[in-house]
Amino acid sequence: MPNIASASKRLRQNEVRNLYNRKIKSFLNTQKKKVIKSIDSNDKASAMEEFKKYSSALDKAARKSVIHLNRASAKKSDMMKKINAMK
């Protein structure tokens, strides 16, 4: 336990931020699974629709500094490559 008041406050803030970041990252993983499921079903229109939602969520997470901007760009690029590789 922290002995200093500011350290106690910092601990409380970190707990709240940790919960928020985990919630956002969990949502990102769910969106990613939806895109992959659409790709596996070989439905390009559905995959593009899900990709738009995933891309938007990544951009929002990057804006809120949950993930790095370059990380979001890399994830979008990787997913777009999978969609473009579909038959």
Rank of each mutant, 00 (worst) to 15 (best):
K34M: 08
L28N: 14
Q13C: 01
R17L: 15
I24P: 02
E15D: 03
N42S: 12
R12E: 15
K23Q: 08
R12Y: 08
N21R: 12
F27G: 09
K25L: 12
V35K: 11
I36R: 06
I24K: 08
K37H: 07
Q13Y: 02
N42Y: 03
D40P: 00
Q31L: 04
D40T: 11
K9Q: 12
N29Y: 01
L11F: 12
R17S: 13
Q13A: 12
L19I: 13
N21F: 15
I36Y: 05
K32W: 06
E15V: 05
S41D: 07
L19C: 00
V35M: 05
D43E: 13
K25I: 08
I24G: 00
R12G: 02
D40E: 14
V16R: 10
S41N: 14
S38Q: 02
K32R: 13
Q13G: 00
Y20Q: 09
I36M: 10
D43F: 05
L28A: 05
N18C: 01
S38Y: 05
Y20M: 05
L11E: 15
S38M: 07
K9T: 10
D40W: 01
S41V: 09
K33E: 14
L19H: 05
D40G: 01
N14P: 00
R12C: 04
N29L: 06
K37P: 01
K32L: 11
K44S: 09
T30N: 12
T30F: 11
R10C: 00
L11N: 07
Q13L: 12
D40Q: 14
L19T: 11
I39D: 09
N18K: 14
K37S: 15
F27N: 13
K32A: 10
N42I: 05
Q13P: 01
I39F: 04
F27D: 15
K25V: 10
N14M: 12
R17T: 11
R22E: 13
T30C: 00
K37R: 12
I36N: 09
S41T: 12
D40H: 08
F27T: 12
K34S: 11
Q13T: 07
L11A: 08
K34P: 00
K44G: 01
S38P: 06
N21S: 07
F27E: 15
V35Y: 06
R10G: 01
N29P: 02
E15N: 00
N21E: 15
K34Y: 09
R12F: 10
